[in-house]
Amino acid sequence: MYAQMIKSEATQDDPEKLAAFQARIDAGEKIEPKDWMPEGYRKTLIRQIGQHAHSEIVGQLPEGNWITRAPTLERKAILLAKVQDEAGHGLYLYCAAETLGVSRDEITEMLLDGRMKYSSIFNYPTLNWADIGAVGWLVDGAAIMNQVPLQRTSFGPYSRAMIRICKEESFHQRQGYDAIRQMAEGTPEQKKMAQDALNRLWYPSLMMFGPSDKDSVHSAQSMAWKIKMNTNDELRQKFVDQTVPQAEYLGLTIPDPDLKWNEERGHYDYTDPDWSEFFDVIKGNGPCNVDRLAARNKAWDDGQWVRDGLLAHARKKAAGKHAAE
């Protein structure tokens, strides 16, 4: 998911207040920023929403990489619109996190110096145009799996951000499927590229849902607080079940020889990703971790004079207006 391995923060609050808070959540009430909330709820949400926001922003890099090299003007305009949406998603989510008492600069700096993470998926490269189709289809597809239930999350600003985001995500997945479909139905070389993209991105996409439930710590508290709506394995299974027929339609093969329909369970059986690779990427050793952080740091540093200049101009104008009154 865009937020992986979010550890719920311990909470040391008045038990009576905690019980009343839990009762509000159980009754389906939304918690708003000025309402009383346990410290653990606040801290866990800052971490989770922040990581989600960072993922939207860093996620622009692998796709932005292909905007100037899109095969047609139409594909370029579509990809540009998609990447612009992701910037918007980052902004909606940063604002939701800010209502919990963290400032935009603080949360940005925590990404830039590595104290906060973003989704492991964006540490994989986009090597060619087929990857752009596969990213929209699989990565946005996996994100949607998690984001749809999060529209019902207990924290009001987070829920509202997710509702806006979900309205836009369906375009992302469809444009990706459409792009890879064109390649799968194209020349044998193009079809080979589409298959190769699926081969490389399948397991990293499965990793997006986070570790297997048996190794996933701290999710009970988050589920009670309704900031995590489903377990990792539930969502991963849903994603596999949805994606297999989509791949079949394209005539592409999921790179998992053990993938097969299980009549009894009513689900596909599939092979888990290599979790040691996942933990290694999280630790910073994926193919693109260094590049991604360097690109974000460069953008932040290069933009400093613009932020300062516009603010100085605004202050000068405000002071002038004040003097004239």
Partner: peptide, 11 residues
């Protein structure tokens, strides 16, 4: 609909 950061009203 939401919020955002900007240096002044015009921006």
């Amino acid at each position: 609909v939401g919020s955002l950061h900007a240096p002044d009203a015009e921006m």
